[in-house]
Design a protein around this nucleic acid. Structure first.
Length: 275
DNA sequence: AAACGCGCCTGCGGGC
DNA sequence: TGCCCGCAGGCGCGTT
C-alpha cells in the first residue's frame, strides 16, 4: 500500500508526537513479519530508550533512539503504524505494541505481514542490508533528468519497471509510477533506453510533482492506508489513471486502459501516452 | 548484468 | 449459501 508519500505522511504525523517519548517495553504478539523479529535485539537497542527523531529513507521509517539505538520500520502493503491510548483494545493483526509514557502506545498492525521491523546500532545504519542498495531519494536534487537518462541507457526493461526499482530511485510504487507516466505522456511499456533526454526530464519532474502533491494531501488511501492518527489520506480523488480502467481520460476522454506488467496492474491512456 | 517469475500473507468482491 | 478465483500501495530471492 504505502509508497513514499504515505510513509512521509506517517512520519510527519508521528514525529512531533513521539519525539522525547520513551519506549518502556515492546510487546511482540506476532514475530513472523517479513523477517522474524528477534526479541533480544529489541531489548538491546530499543527498550527503555528515548526517541530522538524519526527520519525516512525511501519507504522505510528510521527511528533514532538515544545511546546509538535505531529502529527500521517498513509498512509493506497493509502496515499501519498509529498512536493509541492506554485504553486501546488489541485488534486482530496488532503484531507489535510499543509501550510509551503515561500508558500511550504505538501500535503496528499489518494484515498481510509484508511489513518489517528491525532494531540495531545506528552506527550500522548505512550498512543495513535493507538500506545499502537503495538509490537516491526522488525529491532530492541528485535525482534529475541527467541521472535518469544516464542510468537507463542500454536498459531494455520498461520505463515503468525501471522507476519502480528501488536501486535506481526509491519510493516510487505502483500508483505513482502510473500517475507520473501519465503526467509525462510516456507509455508505461516503453523500453527505458528509448526514453530520451527531454522525456527523462519530463518524467523526473512529473515524479517530483506527483509525490509532492500526494504528500500535501496526506497520501493516497485506497482502503487500508492510515496516518499516525489512524486517519485516511485524500489523494485518491486526485488520481488520473490508477484504478480507473474503462473510465474517461481526464485529458482526452478516451477510455483508460489496464494492462499487466511484471504481475502488477498498470493503468494508462493510449492516446495521451506514447512509446 | 539484467530481467523475469515466484513467494510471502490475509481479505474482499465477483461469478457460478 | 458457499466455493473458487483473481486481485490488492512491496520487495527479496532464485533462475535464466
Amino acid at each position: 500500500m504505502p509508497e513514499l508519500p504515505e510513509v512521509e505522511t506517517v512520519r510527519c504525523t508521528l514525529e512531533p508526537e513521539l519525539r522525547g517519548e520513551t519506549i518502556h517495553a515492546v510487546n511482540i504478539r506476532e514475530p513472523r513479519l517479513r523477517w522474524r523479529l528477534e526479541p533480544l535485539r529489541f531489548e538491546k537497542w530499543i527498550a527503555n530508550r528515548t526517541i530522538l527523531n524519526i527520519a525516512r529513507r525511501g519507504k522505510y521509517l528510521v527511528f533514532e533512539m538515544e545511546n546509538s539505538g535505531a529502529m527500521l520500520i517498513h509498512l509493506g502493503m497493509t502496515g499501519v503504524l498509529s498512536l493509541a491510548k492506554r485504553s486501546h483494545e488489541v485488534q486482530t493483526h496488532d503484531h507489535v505494541i510499543f509501550e510509551l509514557n503515561k500508558g500511550r502506545k504505538l501500535v503496528f498492525n499489518d494484515v498481510r505481514r509484508f511489513g518489517s521491523i528491525d532494531a540495531f546500532c545506528i552506527d550500522n545504519l548505512h550498512e543495513h542490508p535493507r538500506l545499502k542498495h537503495l538509490g537516491p531519494e526522488p525529491l532530492e536534487k541528485e535525482f534529475n533528468g541527467d541521472y535518469l537518462y544516464e542510468r537507463s541507457r542500454g536498459m531494455k526493461l520498461s520505463i515503468k519497471n525501471f522507476v519502480m526499482d528501488s536501486r535506481r530511485v526509491v519510493g516510487v510504487g505502483n500508483i505513482y509510477a502510473a500517475e507520473a507516466l501519465f503526467r509525462a505522456g510516456i507509455h508505461p511499456k516503453t523500453p527505458a533506453r528509448r526514453v530520451g533526454r527531454n522525456r527523462c526530464n519530463l518524467l523526473v519532474e512529473a515524479i517530483k510533482q506527483i509525490l509532492s502533491a500526494a504528500i500535501d494531501k496526506g497520501g493516497t488511501t485506497i482502503s487500508d492506508f492510515r496516518n499516525g492518527y489512524g486517519e485516511a489520506g485524500y489523494f485518491s480523488q486526485s488520481l488520473s489513471v490508477y484504478g480507473r480502467e474503462g473510465e474517461p481520460c481526464v485529458r482526452c476522454s478516451s477510455s483508460v486502459r489496464r494492462i499487466v506488467q511484471g504481475g502488477r496492474s498498470t493503468f494508462y491512456c493510449a492516446k495521451c501516452q506514447r512509446g
